[in-house]
Nucleic acid binder design. Structure first.
Lengths: 342, 342
DNA sequence: GTGAAAGCGCTAACAT
DNA sequence: ATGTTAGCGCTTTCAC
């Protein structure tokens, strides 16, 4: 059996409660006994049992992370390691542990969340995605359990704390950027329409197209999973249109890489024959050939801000709602061609 | 306050222990009372407090994951999400939760591990890397706490349970593969020499080179971090040699992508001017141009087998050591050229 | 400034 | 087949 607070108390000739106070560094304990107790802890190699502490003071010192079904290939998107980095950093600063969901299906994940919450295993939860109808979100809200969403909630978004980019504006600006380069036929290759981020970017694209007096064409809109596989099919469909696009707005760098690949196979040159702008600006964007003009959405910050918000929310008794918009910027590289003389 | 086992007991007219037994689905409880108790749980919306349970039966139902310093960019390597997928799957099957380390520096991570272990927060630990001198590993071993290593431990590897590929053999075979294609000047671009995987692959390379009666040249060996940035510098150094290599063994697909990129900038064509074989076979390998001949090391299985081993180790009272070699296979694509007529 | 004692919610002997 | 009773290791009133 491991060494407990009692052993320390015994050795230091104090009561267990005193040892507890020393751990919490209570000001009501004299420096002298503190020293004595600390020496005893040292001697015995004492380490507090976190589980016992959690039970006594009803706080787990852990944050729950809810992924979009971990069996899913979505994890392969470089987005996730990068948000994780940001979250890790914040968790580490606040001395919080991270607890990950492992469920496969949606209902399994739901059960896990219920267990995290009711089992008091975590003090708060971060949802690493935002989709249209989400009963996990509804549940958390109903329980008024501390949580924050990465991405904009589909509804009730003024009563939910979330961290997001302004994806609508980003979608619009990116499209306007291409229009500014003289493109008139711009297609949109987006991810899962269940994800709010896709909807927002598409809406922004739409706005820009119509705003420029161009025609919004349904056959220019393609949705596939946020993965490379989807890219290929999308491109084939698109390029076989009578009037193929001269520019593409692609939801994601990984997808864009797939697109690039397929275009190459088809003998279509980027940026000479077609221009591409994508989102996320992960390492790939820089490493592909041609390198991709991509919207840097500051993924790391998304994660870091999310956990900061969550920790504030846990600490503060009043639950004020907070919405953080992480800035983004278009990083110009070599995947876009100017059609007009500038 | 949440509803507890006592509330359920009261409502079902049984003792708390009976409720506890119903939760554990003990065979010593009559179906009739089970039904009654379950109904009570349902009515009250009862969910067991996992923390309390952990304290009582000294098992956390959670596995600790130790990453190589999470602040580190290493996380960006697609290797990690993929092992995570495998681990997640196994954790999920065994109803184990996952705890992640969040530390930045090595000593911080060490402290976290001590807390996980002494704080009884986890029942076992998976080390997601294997490096040369590792005090975390030594500590775990000294405590005889259940753990498994992904990758081969540097020493004591017959007293430590680990899951790995045969990286020595893989390194050798890959090199022989290139030799078989007529290459005589083969360079090795490896990752961090602190990592055992690098050492093993390099040793295999060495073996193949000497075995074929070729000369082992120090200036053909380059070590950089497992990241794209490293790739560029490495290639420049290498190609400015008097007798530049005609083939490259690269530690990692991501790194190989960087290499590809740099070669392209330098106007060197792959595979016409130089051949490349890399390791890991992540999505990138398929999506790059030219697509990369890469060693598929079955990353997912690495993770899955690791957690299976760990769970066995936790459950079985006897700690028999287990070493699992996950098979690998060379996936041929378009980055290698045959120099001889075949 | 320190100690005694109750209790967090559950499990696991030991009874019956 | 079920109830009684101690804990698990810690925190936290309430005394002194």
């Amino acid at each position: 059996m491991a060494v407990t607070i009692k052993d320390v108390a015994l050795r230091a000739n104090v009561a267990p409660s005193t040892v507890s106070r020393v751990i919490a560094n209570s000001s009501r304990i004299s420096e002298k006994t503190k020293k004595r107790v600390r020496a005893a802890m040292e001697d015995l190699g004492y380490h507090p049992n976190i589980i016992a502490r959690s039970l006594a003071n009803k706080s787990a010192q852990a944050i729950g992370l809810v992924m979009p079904s971990s069996g899913n290939k979505v994890l392969q998107n470089p987005f996730f390691p990068e948000v994780l980095r940001g979250i890790s950093m914040g968790a580490h600063e606040a001395k919080q542990a991270l607890y990950m969901s492992t469920g496969e299906t949606e209902s399994e994940i739901f059960q896990e969340v219920v267990q995290m919450v009711q089992g008091r295993r975590v003090d708060g939860i971060i949802l690493l995605y935002s989709k249209v109808e989400d009963n996990i979100l509804s549940y958390l809200k109903a329980q008024s359990f501390p949580f924050v969403v990465i991405g904009k909630p589909f509804k009730d978004n003024d009563s939910i704390t979330y961290v997001d980019n302004d994806n609508f504006r980003a979608g619009r600006e990116v499209t306007e950027y291409l229009i500014g380069k003289g493109h008139q036929n711009i297609a949109f290759i987006g991810g899962d329409l269940e994800l709010v981020v896709t909807i927002d970017r598409l809406t922004g694209y739409d706005k820009a197209i119509r705003g420029a007096g161009l025609q919004y064409r349904d056959d220019y809109i393609i949705h596939e999973e946020f993965l490379q596989q989807g890219g290929k099919e999308a491109v084939h469909e698109l390029m076989s249109l009578e009037e193929p696009p001269t520019a593409l707005v692609v939801a994601d760098d990984l997808m864009a890489l797939g697109v690039l690949n397929t275009l190459d196979e088809m003998g279509i040159s980027v940026p000479n024959d077609i221009s591409i702008v994508s989102f996320n600006n992960v390492l790939l964007a820089e490493m592909s050939r041609p390198s991709l003009t991509s919207v840097d959405i500051n993924i790391y910050d998304l994660g870091y801000q999310a956990i900061r918000c969550l920790i504030e929310q846990i600490e503060s008794p009043y639950d004020m709602v907070k919405n953080i918009k992480v800035p983004y910027q278009i990083i110009e590289r070599n995947s876009c061609k100017n059609l007009v003389n500038s």
